[in-house]
Amino acid sequence: MLSKRIIPCLDIDNGRVVKGVKFLNLVDAGDPVENAKFYDEEGADELILLDITASSDNRSILFDTVKKVADSIHTPFTVGGGIRTIEEIKKLIQAGADKVSLNTVLVKNPEIISEGARKFGSQAMVAAIDAKRVGEHKWNIFIKGGREDTGLDALLWASKLESLGAGEILLTSMDKDGTKKGYDLELVRTISETVKIPVIASGGVGTLEDLYRGITEGKADAVLAASIFHFREYSIRQVKEFLKEKGVSIRL
């Protein structure tokens, strides 16, 4: 039976791990390679590296970080943040990323997913969606780190990206991110039941119960968390034992 994936996320700023509270007020949480090795050793199912300030910055620091992380672990990992071109995708994959996560670029150029899927396989193309509640049962897509409303409906957008060849959706609730009040379960469940590809729930984890509810009520295929792991509030092992005990399919 396929296990639910527990995925720590490293938010990277200029080659350092940070974690934003609602994408602001960054707190330094350390070196990416050391963090990645720690999670590899702990048995994290995957890792995600998100370059959060990258949109227009020099990418060489990121390529260098990706290479160092890839050379240090035997755990699959995704890299995202400010990726705009097929050339960048190629460089990141050559540096050792297993998958890339695309976000802002998709709004202007959704076909980049199709081109990437043809070159590198759908499994390497993660579509990141930052959604914010704009009404009852309605969420819109926000870009530029949550600063700009595109007016796109989250549900339709997720389906479109799936049909273009995305292999997975990384779904972040802008309302919940950094709050530690739990995932937007209605959002996660709605998207997860709409698309056929796996959905990673992100944004808002504060407790072990939040992760459990993301999987059971949210029907997420994977759950992402950052701060609860970085500040060692919980170990991966603790999270996994908790979920396993509650009957979730987990790899220990």
């Binding site: 039976m1 994936r5 199912d45 759908s122 499994q123 796996p198 994977a222």
Partner: peptide, 11 residues
Amino acid sequence: SLKVPHMGWNQ
């Protein structure tokens, strides 16, 4: 009926 790709850890 399950999600595709088959992605993650399995026995």
